[in-house]
């Protein structure tokens, strides 16, 4: 073959579609995704089919599973099953919104830190500072100061997650900006914002998707911990953390009040993490090579 003959391979139409298809071929992504879809369907549709999660029933207090409702009742006689079904919504909303907000903010700051040398030191020192404050303590303090609402809980979980996204994006940017193709674009007179959008940003997408799934999982855990400690979403909302927090007092008598939401939460987070691992293996070959 002489050097000038062309390969017969067909042109690719869209890399992104094939990327998704590629990712779905991974067992973790597929099965984790199936479980997540089921949980999400449950969270959306379920509340219409169960009893009112806040309805009190003092006669039927602390009943074991099966005798009153699928998961029993709590100390106020509320149906634990319907509370758990309603709690799923809260968990998913917190997980998703934290992931989206943290990634968006982290991406913005990371791009700036990675490409504008003047801002780099400033942003990274700020992130170092933020990272050294223990996340849960920071969240507890923020929530107790600004009052517990769903929004403040989300913000309080987002803030400590930002530094890791910034570091990830910055490291990608620093690697990519050394690539000859970026230098070729500079030589071709392409302006900095265009270089960032056209040549740098696409390289951050795969690692960010992976990171977003991990953040989603960890945010759901943090939410439940905050609820459990009594420092999270207002107690009248039946989040999984709150249900378990209320179950503490009678744990030795009625362990199911903690176990059912606990198992649901663990299953959801596990599904998210399994999807994350699968995505990492397929989308981010650099890390995947080491982690497989």
């Amino acid at each position: 073959m002489t050097d000038a003959t062309l390969p017969a391979a067909p042109a690719e139409t869209s890399k992104d579609i094939s990327l998704i298809r590629h990712a779905l071929r991974n067992r973790g992504v597929f099965w984790g995704g199936v479980v997540l879809l089921l949980i999400a369907a449950f969270a959306i549709v379920g509340p219409f089919f169960v009893a009112d999660p806040t309805a009190l029933n003092p006669i039927n207090r602390l009943k074991p599973p099966g005798s009153a409702g699928l998961f029993g009742t709590d100390m106020l006689g509320r149906d634990v099953y319907s509370r758990v079904v309603n709690g799923a919504q809260i968990s998913l909303v917190v997980g998703l919104s934290v992931a989206v907000i943290a990634v968006a903010l982290g991406l913005f700051l990371g791009l700036i830190a990675g490409y504008i040398r003047l801002m780099d030191a400033l942003i990274m020192r700020l992130m170092d500072g933020l990272m050294s404050i223990p996340a849960i303590l920071l969240a507890i303090a923020l929530i107790s100061l600004s009052g517990a609402t769903l929004a403040t809980v989300v913000v309080a979980i987002v803030i400590p997650e930002i530094p890791r996204v910034v570091r990830l994006v910055r490291s990608v940017v620093l690697t990519v900006r050394e690539e000859p193709y970026v230098e070729a674009a500079i030589s071709a007179g392409t302006k900095v914002p265009t270089i960032l959008m056209r040549h740098v940003l696409p390289n951050t997408i795969a690692p960010l998707i992976v990171q977003a799934t991990y953040i989603c999982g960890s945010a759901m855990l943090t939410e439940s911990i905050l609820g459990f400690l009594g420092a999270g979403i207002p107690p009248e909302i039946p989040s999984w953390g709150n249900i378990m927090s209320e179950g503490r007092t009678f744990f030795q008598l009625t362990p199911w009040i903690i176990f059912f939401p606990g198992v649901c939460l663990a299953l959801t987070v596990l599904a998210v993490n399994v999807v994350g691992d699968g995505l990492r293996d397929t989308l981010d070959p650099r890390i995947a090579k080491a982690m497989r």
Binding site: K15, P180, Y181, A184, I186, S187, H199, P202
Partner: peptide
Amino acid sequence: RRDIQIVFQDPYRSLNPR
């Protein structure tokens, strides 16, 4: 910039793969 152009060593990294 347009007056002066460069060809780099590594053919595998000189073109944006995307």
